[in-house]
Design a protein around this nucleic acid. Structure first.
Length: 253
DNA sequence: ATGGTTGTACGACAA
């Protein structure tokens, strides 16, 4: 079962890329973040015509998440219970017996800012939510744009980024908190020593200069056997790309 | 790498 996470930074702009990607890779599940459109604008018909089922929850201009699969998408839920948050950042569903939680974790802007405090509060609520979901579901994948680089190997130049947003100690502690629930960082376990990046700033020609950061992740329960995985960096090299590349795994199912 | 680009929407903010 091929599972992919991709922050598309506007599905309106990126729909052609997404349709090409589906055609090229035929994933069993594609989880999107930052669709940036209200539900009435979601390209349901185009994706269904391509042979996919879709569930989605968006808002105007910001955020927005979606799950796309050729298989039935069951038991859909949105948001984090017990977190009063108008921002559309979470959608969950069961596909092929695997519970999928698709998250767009807040960016946080700057350490110490109001948005950073929101990120911390959000991550605390996420951990409680995932803890609860793990008691209900045998197999679970928590995937999405985490806006956290878990370790120095996940940053092109760790010394320049030290302590800054995406890699502060408190953000990394929250990431570790998710691992402490029993989840595993599938891509890092597959490639223990390989720098892998999933996001490159649009600015300063960051992609060409290989200034990347790994902030998109697929965490899995230990009973999921991960066969292969990586990041489809070539998507970032295309014309008018998202600033994120798809992160993918293939699991035994 | 402390400037710079992109998306939304048309000024300014978020990333």
């Amino acid at each position: 079962m091929k599972i992919v996470s991709w922050n598309v930074n506007s599905l309106n702009v990126r729909l052609p890329h997404v349709l090409d990607y589906l055609n090229a890779h035929k994933p069993d599940l594609l989880a999107l973040q930052e669709t940036k459109q209200t539900d009435d604008k979601f390209p349901k018909d185009d994706l269904e015509a391509a042979g996919y089922n879709v569930v989605f929850m968006g808002q105007k201009t910001y955020n927005g998440v979606a799950i796309i699969s050729p298989h039935p998408i069951e038991d859909v839920s949105t948001d984090i219970p017990n977190l009063d948050d108008p921002q559309k950042r979470v959608i969950a569903a069961t596909v092929n017996g695997v519970r999928i939680i698709d998250v767009y974790i807040p960016n946080g802007q700057e350490v110490g800012s109001e948005k950073y405090a929101y990120k911390m509060k959000w991550l605390t609520a996420l951990q409680a939510y995932v803890h609860d979901e793990l008691t209900k579901h045998d197999k679970l994948v928590l995937l999405g744009d985490y806006n956290i680089a878990p370790a120095d190997i996940d940053i092109h130049d760790p010394s320049r980024w030290e302590g800054s947003i995406l890699c502060s100690d408190r953000e990394r502690a929250h990431f570790q908190g998710l691992l402490d629930l029993g989840l595993r960082d599938s891509l890092r376990e597959l490639h223990p020593d390989e720098p892998m990046f999933s996001w490159w700033d649009y600015r300063a020609n960051a992609f060409r200069r290989k200034w990347g950061v790994r902030i998109d992740h697929l965490l899995v329960t230990p009973n999921i056997k991960v066969i292969d995985g990586g990041i489809h960096t070539e998507e970032r090299a295309k014309e008018r790309p998202s600033d994120h590349a798809p992160a993918w795994i293939d699991i035994d199912s």
